[in-house]
Design a protein around this nucleic acid. Structure first.
Length: 218
DNA sequence: GGATGGATTGGCT
DNA sequence: GCCAATCCATCCA
């Protein structure tokens, strides 16, 4: 986006910032995922984040840790920010979260949508404005929705509790992109009473790759 | 040990 | 718009 800005890997400590700051600033960042093809060759896909949600802990009825709920599943959220919280919902879809804030402040950010930006194969950088690349990366094109995003990037609970870092094969980079962000109510939490109207969803204003439910709710 | 329901998606009416 | 899919964490007896 901004070619004069040095690309920086976001260190785990970046995610110890307040949850709403992380959720908002994460829009425009690159979600980077290293995978292997059928022949075992490694490649890295970079996805531009366009939609996130904040789940803000003890006083948030929509959050898995509301009222201090502390179980085997949610224990990871009580760690310091900078590790993944990944769980299965509806028996079908993996939800990708990054744990945020300090230890004992059990909050996280859900990654809801992104779009394909570039792919790195054997040090060659293939950008999304190359028609032949877009054609070959069709399976990465539709990343609008939290379940679709994890499915296309091969993200499962294997990564739960692991640090947000290149060694893990899943990390974030900042290349200076800073799009306009709008606040919206969160999706799929009708059970949460008043909290269903809280403005804790952060979207790239007017972007066409927002999740389907997101557009519907607009 | 059994019941409940979900931070979703895609297919069908 | 409606609804099944499909696993498993969580809660209650």
């Amino acid at each position: 986006m901004n070619s004069s800005h040095a690309v920086q890997i976001l260190p785990p400590e970046w995610f110890t910032l307040p949850t709403c700051v992380v959720a908002s600033d994460m829009v425009g960042k690159l979600l980077c995922r290293t995978m292997s093809d059928a022949d075992g060759n490694l490649y890295t896909v970079k996805i531009r984040v366009v939609e996130t949600e904040a789940y803000i802990g003890l006083d948030d009825p929509a959050c898995h840790t509301h009222a201090g709920t502390r179980t085997k599943r949610t224990e990871v959220m009580y760690e310091a920010g900078g590790i993944f919280y990944i769980y299965l919902t509806y028996g079908v879809h993996h939800m990708l979260n990054v744990v945020t804030s300090r230890a004992e402040s059990p909050e996280s950010v859900l990654i809801r949508a992104g779009f394909f930006d570039e792919c790195i194969v054997s040090n060659a950088i293939l950008k999304n404005n190359q028609p032949e690349l877009v054609a070959s990366m069709t399976h990465h094109k539709n990343l609008a929705g939290p379940g679709k995003l994890t499915n296309r990037l091969n993200i499962t609970r294997d990564l739960n509790q692991l640090p947000v870092a290149p060694d893990t094969g899943l990390w974030f980079e900042d290349d200076g992109c800073s799009p306009p962000v709008q606040l919206r109510p969160r999706i799929g939490i009708d059970y949460a009473g008043d909290a269903k109207d809280w403005l804790l969803r952060y979207v790239w204003a007017g972007h066409k790759s927002l999740s389907k439910l997101s557009c519907h709710n607009h």
